[in-house]
């Protein structure tokens, strides 16, 4: 990957307010294929809102988000939902696994939603669970596994559909140091192997150290540290 590579995802001059509270105030961000970009900043700085806008979960009040040349802000809700299913993967702080389903069924779900038959989807899921070193808990429900295991299941679910971009919002926020590092190592290695880009929101410098570069968000404005030094 080089700095000259074409942007995969590009946000320009994003503004977003919740009521009278501004969350983003002209934020920019560029993500290139295969790179891991850490988005850091204090609580309430707007970093999660930036991630949600990039992923098409939240619509910005103004500004543009382009993904592979297509303007996300001009798409219909249905188009954005389809894009999230086919091209994006998500990992959140608390896994957000479906408690009634087994770990295997959770991981197979994106493939099932995309129309893959159950047996094929579950075979893919089993492969990813093994790769994330949690193959032995495939038949257990999320409530029966540890936080670290649950988060690795969430990473497997994010990667099973071979997304081009994985959005990870504080993926280690609920884990101890050792489990957090394991999740980061597995997530970044797997993303590297599959060529997926990762947008990583974190307030932990040791987690950000797994990235290729860092963007700092303060008061809704973004700053690329590569441009400063």
């Amino acid at each position: 990957m080089t700095a000259a590579a074409e942007p995969l995802l590009q946000a320009t001059a994003l503004r977003k307010s919740y009521g009278r509270t501004p969350a983003l105030d002209g934020a920019d961000l560029t993500v290139r294929a295969g790179e891991v970009v850490a988005v850091m900043g204090p609580s309430g700085s707007g970093k999660s809102t930036l991630l949600h806008c990039l992923a098409g979960i939240v619509q910005a009040d103004s500004g543009r988000v382009c993904y592979r040349g297509r303007d996300l802000t001009a798409m219909s809700d249905a188009e954005r939902s389809a894009l999230r299913r086919t091209d994006f993967g998500f990992v959140f702080q608390f896994g957000q696994l479906v408690p009634e389903l087994t770990c295997l069924e959770n991981v197979a779900m994106p493939a099932r939603l995309a129309g893959t038959r159950r047996r094929a989807a579950e075979a893919q899921a089993a492969e990813w669970l093994a790769r994330l070193e949690v193959g032995e808990i495939a038949g257990k429900r999320p409530g029966e596994v540890s936080g670290g295991q649950g988060q690795r299941v969430a990473v497997a679910r994010a990667l099973v559909g071979s997304p081009r971009v994985v959005f990870a919002d504080e993926p280690t926020g609920a884990l101890d140091s050792l489990n957090g590092e394991r999740v980061m190592r597995l997530l970044t290695d797997a993303a590297h192997d599959t060529g997926a880009a990762v947008v990583l929101v974190t307030h932990e410098p040791r987690v950000a150290a797994y990235s290729d570069r860092e963007i700092v968000v303060r008061d809704g404005k973004s700053r690329d540290l590569e441009q400063v030094s």
Binding site: A208, A209, E214, L225, V228
Partner: peptide, 18 residues
């Protein structure tokens, strides 16, 4: 700017160590 320059330098070393 001074703080951000230093921050970038720290993160560079943290990446290397990681």
């Amino acid at each position: 700017d001074l703080l951000d320059t230093q921050r970038a330098e720290h993160l560079r070393l943290m990446r290397e160590l990681t």
